[in-house]
Design a protein around this nucleic acid. Structure first.
Lengths: 152, 152
DNA sequence: TTTTTAAATAATATTAATTATCATTTATAG
DNA sequence: CTATAAATGATAATTAATATTATTTAAAAA
């Protein structure tokens, strides 16, 4: 944890930004809830627990900054809100998501899986890929097995 | 054009919805601007040109309805607005997008490309894929060649 | 054809997410 | 220690999207 905070601190300093107490509190929340996909409002409420004086605008500004530095990725699953997802340590690319349309759960896929596809896009379309967003919508394992039970 | 309107009419009727004049005007705009990625507001303004009495709420409702019937796909490129994209005729899946971070252009890829990946997701994660969203961010061919020219 | 019922619409109010403004605080450099 | 810039908190403003409601339109029943 401290190690990752330190890395992020350096990434900020490299662009002459500071890791203020508010920014650190925000980053800590993101680290603690790495498996989740929090909205700005979610983050705000969690940060408030440990730093009650923080303002909502600061959280938005911090998330925006972290997005620019590719420390977090901003993602949208089709409900009205943006969600913020910490990039995995050392990951070159954003990871993928499996959104269950039954229960709303979100699983993450860290494996690349897109190497071949990116090569095709690069070679056949002449498009230089810098980043991607891949989300699958469907039924998660859990909901599939429940469906079997309830129909039997 | 008329052929596709007819198909959509049938799809609506199959679910006992009607193709009202407002809905038809909206669909026509989507067909005419198939290459674009219009927001609800964009669609509203274009529909207003041919049917000035239409209300914004009706456009939203129509786009929502067309989404449910999988006639259009709702997509979000990270700016604050949802965009609506006609599904290609007979396409089982939503197509992919190449968003240029330089000029903002959006190219479409109709080829599937994800068959292998979906198989992996299905087999290794036990996730039953129903739909997907794949967007690449990067530099389009045009902007790449311009970059070469300007740096020489 | 009239009457009845339901679906769809237009206009507008409301909500909710995000951004902008601005005075104040904090940190940094001279 | 002052001067300058960066960051923050509070709140106003904006904007996309949804909800409400009275009205219109269309279909079904009598």
């Amino acid at each position: 944890m401290e190690h990752r905070i330190d890395r992020i601190k350096k990434q900020l300093h490299a662009q002459s930004y500071k890791l203020t107490p508010q920014r650190e509190a925000t980053v800590r929340v993101l680290l603690e809830r790495e498996e989740d996909h929090l909205s700005a409002e979610d983050v705000y409420l969690l940060v408030k627990e440990k730093a009650p004086e923080i303002g909502l605008a600061t959280v938005y500004r911090t998330l925006e900054l972290l997005s620019e530095l590719k420390i977090v990725d901003k993602i949208n699953f089709g409900d009205g809100v943006s969600r913020y997802d910490l990039r995995k340590e050392g990951a070159a690319h954003f990871h993928h998501h499996l959104v269950c349309t039954e229960c709303g759960s979100v699983e993450e896929i860290v494996e690349d899986l897109l190497e071949d596809v990116e090569k095709i896009v690069q070679d056949d379309w002449g498009f230089k890929v810098k980043d991607h967003r891949l989300t699958f919508h469907g039924i998660c394992r859990q909901c599939q097995s429940e469906a079997v039970i309830s129909s039997s």
